[in-house]
Nucleic acid binder design. Structure first.
Length: 461
RNA sequence: GGCGCGAUAGCAAAGCGGUUAUGCCGCGGCCUGCAAAGCCGUUUAGACCAGUUCGACUCUGGUUCGCGCCUCCA
């Protein structure tokens, strides 16, 4: 019985799909004007894990993740770069795909782009105007009238009367209420625009998610997710738009993942304290980053630092070390097996990946003690459920980015093998001084040798 | 000002009203020519103050501190 913390009700609830054995899920994706940072990585890995768990649990999952390819920042950046928004957004979409693939994030069923759904947005805005939820202001912009929607604030727990609109940003004087938000912006010089009943212009941000979720999943779907910072106003506004348009509940369950932090502060563009995924991947193996994200609960804050990544790397190394020498692949899991049952119970409890990962470590210990193929296979299979441990163990242990000086590394694996043979000859001759010298030489280059009954193996530090 | 979240050992991070979380690090032992890996054992917990209870890290209230949202943000 899967339980999920629902932001809407502020407690854990048993998950009941709208349609038996099916899950329809929408997650707010990227605005593509720059490289993705670790905060984005977390959303993607978390909801990838969520969709994988649904599938492992026998659900047919339809996962939709949008791409925002038209907004103020994109236009600004394109102008700065002297390129078209199409060129700019496509470049960062490609970069995003590359980053996510490395992190083991599977492609969603649909990745709609805002600019492909302008007609749908115009239709929804028209409907909102007709129903009295939106109005065109004297400057030509169309706004949503928050006071017209009785439940405004139900997701974020905010009351319109307590919000401090205008405290930090000047309120647009064309609005009827300070909290009204824009659905359609009338055209400005040198900006991309589309024809509409309200003149040339472009859509506001929130409307795209209401339109694209309904297009792919219907007016009423199971799960809507995103980063915690989207809960208000973005998700609140989506609800206001969708529910006013369709007169039915939008999503049953709202999920929000916690922030990635740096020195206990939210990682964000405005603070400038962000690390891009590709920056981090220069230093750390992508699976280490994925593991780092999944060993924390998705709703908890996650502090980023090299110390923590080093720790994650050492931990993941233990898991792969247990798998080394076992030629096993992911297999069907018998969920009644005690370890598997514990893993499932953890995942069913609001996706408790830290607990699920603890089971993986217990299995690793079991593998190390018994050398059982069956246990190793289970470890690999449960790892697969969360998108971990699927590489060949030696490939991971020998391929991970070294923490030592790159320039000192032996040119290639062949050279390492030569050194190993050299050392074995010295060992056979009981010339331990020479053998230790060779081992030290390799150790200084970040290569650790391990003598086993089956011979000498190596891995990178 | 409104609303919300959190405080667990050196670091990271879970569950749980009474029984070893887990990982990294440290320490001792086994193994090893010596190491490494592994195995066994082990030192460090539950911000503070009350209350409920036979018993609280776990429930309740308060205090302190930290963080987030109320503007764009994953």
């Amino acid at each position: 019985m899967l339980k999920i913390y629902n932001s809407l009700s502020r407690n854990k609830q048993t998950f009941t799909p709208i349609e038996a054995n099916k899950v329809r899920m929408y997650v707010c994706g990227m605005t593509v004007y720059d490289f993705c940072h670790l905060g984005h990585a977390r959303v993607m890995v978390v909801f990838d894990m969520v969709s994988r768990w649904f599938r492992s649990s026998g659900y047919d999952v339809t996962y939709v993740r949008n791409i925002t390819d038209i907004d103020d920042k994109i236009i600004k950046r394109a102008n700065e770069n002297g390129e078209t928004i199409d060129v700019l957004t496509q470049r960062f979409i490609d970069a995003m795909d590359e980053d996510f693939a490395k992190l083991g994030v599977e492609s969603p069923a649909f990745q709609p782009r805002a600019t492909q759904h302008i007609d749908g947005m115009i239709a929804m805005i028209s409907a909102l105007i007709e129903k009295g939820h939106a109005y065109q202001a004297t400057n030509g912009d169309v706004f949503y009238s928050v006071r017209s929607f009785a439940n405004y604030g139900k997701l974020s727990g905010k009351s319109l009367d307590d919000l401090r609109a205008g405290e930090r940003v000047e309120v647009d004087t064309f609005k009827k209420d300070a909290m009204d938000f824009v659905l359609w912006k009338s055209v400005k010089p040198n900006e991309p625009n589309w024809d509409s009943p309200w003149g040339k212009g472009r859509p506001g941000w929130h409307i795209e998610c209401s339109v694209m979720s309904a297009h792919h999943l219907g007016a009423h779907f199971d799960i809507h997710g995103g980063g915690q910072d989207l809960q208000f106003p973005h998700h609140e506004n989506e609800i206001a738009q969708s529910e006013a348009t369709h007169s039915c509940q939008m999503a049953n369950t709202w999920m929000h993942n916690g922030f990635v932090r740096v020195d206990d502060e939210k990682m964000s563009k405005s603070l400038g304290n962000f690390f891009t995924i590709r920056e981090v991947l220069k230093k750390y193996d992508a699976e280490v980053v994925r593991f780092f994200i999944l060993r924390a609960h998705y709703r908890s804050p996650l502090n980023y630092s090299d110390v923590h990544l080093d720790d994650a790397k050492a931990s993941l190394t233990r898991l792969y070390t247990a798998l080394r020498g076992h030629k096993v692949s992911a297999n069907t899991i018998g969920w009644n097996e005690p370890y598997a049952a514990r893993f499932k119970a953890a995942m069913d409890d609001d996706f408790n990946t830290p607990e699920a990962v603890a089971v993986l470590f217990d299995l690793a210990n079991e593998v190390n003690k018994t050398q059982s193929m069956a246990v190793a296979s289970l470890l690999k299979s449960l790892g697969a459920v969360v998108g971990l441990l699927q590489r060949n163990a030696d490939e991971f242990l020998q391929g991970i980015q070294p923490t030592s000086d790159l320039s000192k590394l032996p040119a290639d694996d062949v050279l390492i093998q030569d050194k190993i043979v050299e050392r074995l000859i010295a060992k056979d001759a009981k010339n331990f001084a020479e053998a230790d010298h060779i081992r030290k030489e390799l150790a200084d280059a970040g290569i650790i040798l391990e003598d086993t009954p089956q011979g000498t193996t190596w891995r990178r530090a």
